[in-house]
């Protein structure tokens, strides 16, 4: 019973993540910040939700399947390398940071967003064979504080409702 429930949750969260990353394309964040490739990172809400409510293993599964399906639906291979590396690095950092009681979901989210950008720039350095791409990193990191806070506040709201409705968070 519990396994079936877990499976259904995973499926729902994967489709939610895919829909969120699609909707995200219509949010004109680039008009405000003027940096190529800037995103709000709404799919990270799903990763955090999976991490807090389904556990680390499910979170990694959801992330992996989400990235592959995302690439299949129009990201392409280079897109996959970026989303997968960024996503895995973010999830590893968020898993570790959640252990530190000092950080709330806001802090975990901000650090995850920063890790995501570091991972993506890392891939860019390898793919472009050029360290000059690192010049983008400071801008991306500054922006990740704001996007991390935004997704963190979405998570705080959603988690509160989930907890009230009887969902029990996984042990960290």
């Amino acid at each position: 019973m519990r396994e079936t429930k877990q499976l259904i949750y995973c499926a729902i969260l994967i489709s939610l993540a895919l829909v969120l990353s699609y909707i995200e394309r219509f949010i004109p964040l680039q008009m405000i910040v003027g940096l190529p490739g800037i995103k709000l990172g709404l799919a990270n809400v799903v990763t955090l939700m999976a991490l807090y409510f389904l556990g680390v293993k499910s979170a990694f599964t959801i992330l992996g399947i989400r990235c592959f399906l995302g690439a299949f639906f129009g990201g392409g291979f280079s897109g996959l390398a970026f989303s997968l590396t960024g996503g895995i690095l973010a999830l590893v950092v968020m898993t570790l940071m959640r252990q530190i009681k000092l950080f709330s979901v806001y802090g975990v989210s901000v650090l995850g967003a920063a890790a995501h950008n570091i991972g993506q720039i890392g891939v860019a350095v390898v793919l472009m064979e050029s360290v000059y791409v690192v010049g983008y990193l400071p801008y991306l990191l500054i922006v990740s504080i704001f996007t991390g806070m935004a997704t963190g506040s979405i998570c705080a709201g959603v988690f509160r409702i989930l907890a009230v409705s009887g969902q029990i968070p996984e042990k960290s």
């Binding site: 940071m97 650090l111 920063a114 504080i145 705080a156 960290s172």
Partner: peptide
């Protein structure tokens, strides 16, 4: 939150998290 496993309130620790990212920003720049 009643549940001790989940910390959903923005607190001092999160300011530190932002500080860490700011420090990384300046270091990389």
């Amino acid at each position: 939150m009643k549940d001790r496993k989940m910390n959903l309130k923005f607190g001092k620790g999160d300011v530190i998290a932002i500080g860490i990212v700011l420090a990384l920003t300046f270091l990389t720049a």
